[in-house]
Amino acid sequence: MERELLLECQRSSRSAQRKVYEKMAGKLYSVCRRYLKNDEDIEEVLADTFYKIFTKITQLQNLDTFEAWARKIAVNECLQKLRATKAQFISMDENFVETSGTSSENISFEKDILSLLNFLPEGCRAIFNLFAIEGYPHKEIASMLSISEGTSKSQLNFARKKLQELLINQNI
């Protein structure tokens, strides 16, 4: 993102805000889409995200981190929406045993995987996104979602198994 454009946003320039919106809307929509299924919820969260971005941009000290900062706001808004709608987590045994898998296998069909995320329950999808895509550790995920660390791990395990089944069934 251009530094001068962000400085203009910090000065509350409407034209600069519009340009930032146009440049970032697609990226942030994709982030929200990974967490939420309903288009109305996504649009609501996206609006809240941009409101927060433009009202708090003066607090951002390092403009070079703008995109990561904006993305984090979008993720937090999605999580807030999930908490407000009381996303359901699949009941599983807290005595979690992680399945073995080779993490060195890179999946070259990211779009297919992301589209399959829509078949996961909301809570499970959120944990998969936070862990596998955003890179949060289980302890932080548990804190963010007010669940136990074991629940976070078991939900991730469930998501992996479900995605694996979906991949096999769809011959991807």
Rank of each mutant, 00 (worst) to 15 (best):
R83M: 10
L60M: 03
L116P: 06
R160M: 08
N118G: 14
E40F: 13
K81D: 14
N76I: 07
I107K: 09
A74Y: 09
N157P: 04
R125E: 04
K19F: 01
E149V: 03
Y35C: 10
A68C: 11
G123F: 01
E105A: 13
E8H: 07
Y35M: 12
V97L: 02
M92T: 08
P121V: 05
E110L: 09
K37N: 15
V45Y: 01
I90W: 05
L120E: 00
S115V: 01
S143H: 02
K86Y: 08
N118R: 13
N169D: 14
M92R: 10
L167W: 12
F131A: 15
A16V: 05
T58E: 12
D39E: 14
N157A: 11
L114S: 10
R34M: 10
S12V: 01
D64W: 04
R11I: 00
L130G: 09
T151N: 05
S154N: 02
W69N: 10
N62R: 05
Y51D: 13
I113T: 12
L130K: 07
D93P: 01
E98A: 15
F50W: 11
S104V: 12
R34C: 11
I107Q: 12
V20D: 03
A159F: 00
A16F: 02
G123T: 01
F131N: 15
L60G: 05
F89A: 01
I42C: 06
L116V: 08
V31E: 04
Q164T: 14
D48N: 13
Y51S: 11
S143Q: 07
Q170T: 15
V31K: 05
Y21S: 06
R14T: 09
Q10N: 03
L120Y: 02
L117R: 02
S152A: 05
A16L: 03
S152M: 01
I141A: 00
S152D: 03
Q17V: 07
A132I: 04
A87N: 07
L7I: 10
Q88E: 15
L163G: 11
Q17W: 08
I141Y: 00
F50V: 09
F96T: 15
T151R: 03
L116Q: 13
N129V: 13
V45T: 10
T85A: 11
N95W: 06
L5S: 03
A25H: 12
F158K: 06
S100I: 09
F54V: 05
I53N: 06
N95K: 04
I90A: 05
L79M: 11
I90V: 07
F119P: 04
R18I: 14
S104I: 08
S148I: 03
V75K: 03
N106Q: 15
A142E: 00
A142D: 01
E40L: 08
N38P: 08
L116F: 12
F54N: 04
L28H: 11
S148W: 00
F128D: 05
A126L: 06
F96I: 13
K86P: 06
L166K: 06
K56N: 11
R3A: 06
A68M: 10
L130N: 06
D39C: 06
L167I: 14
R18G: 07
L145A: 02
L82I: 09
D93Y: 00
R18H: 12
Q10A: 02
G26H: 02
